[in-house]
Amino acid sequence: MEGARRTSIRGSLLMARLVLSSPTGFAGAVIVAGLLILSLIGPVLAPYDPYKQDMSERLMPPSWEHPFGTDQLGRDILSRVLYGCRISLSIALLVVAISATIGLLLGLVSGYFGGLVDEALMRVTDLFFAFPRLILAMAVAAALGPSIINTMLAIATVSWPVYARLVRACVLQVRNETYIEAARAIGAGHVRILFRHVLPMVVHVVLVQATLDLGSIILLAAGLSFIGLGAPPPTPEWGLMVSEGRLYIRSQWWVSTFPGLAIMISALGFNMLGDALRDAFDVRLGR
């Protein structure tokens, strides 16, 4: 209905204003917006073909021709970083979409029905939490073999338990509310209660966690590529580029530094935006 649209637009505007009014939120939003734009038009901006090798131009320091310098195969680093933006961002977004959806569904079921289902699911998540995320992702990635798809699968496999836990905790609170009992009293079934009544009350925690997670997934993907379990060469993946430049780090610092900075800035951007988003939700929900 007309009014619903009006109110949800008003709500989103309020959220946007809250996020942008904090300095970190503003910086995060600018960085994330920049990353999104670069991942869309990066290939257009790139001055060179990121795969084109030129051994006569190898390991050139930053100059007007090559603002970020060239790598050991004479490829333009700026172009590679720009192309890499799309790769890193699509990995991060896809992984978050998959793991948040899985975690959300399992968390909803676990928290709402409780009992044996809950016990079983929570013990599985305990299993995942018992290992560091990177180690577990390494194991999965090593088993699957290096490719971008496998990197995503590996990271998604280790990322969903956080969402499941978070959502479950939230559902435990919500399911005892009177409005849930009221829904039962009018004859609503479990599916309807879960998706129409419980879900709207937990979706914001998923949103905040997903934003924060985007940063750490970019790091994780870069980490996997760095140790050779992620994207295979010659993919212009940031982690892989850092790894390839590590032999030259003493004399040709730019080979690793620029992709490293890209990783750092994007992880930072998502974290700052996520933090501000959480604060904004807290304000809006009156906590």
Binding site: M1, T7, T178, E181, A183, P200
Partner: peptide, 10 residues
């Protein structure tokens, strides 16, 4: 507490 906070009256 008995009305869902994210639903409109309609």
């Amino acid at each position: 507490t008995s009305l869902h906070p994210r639903m409109q009256v309609s």
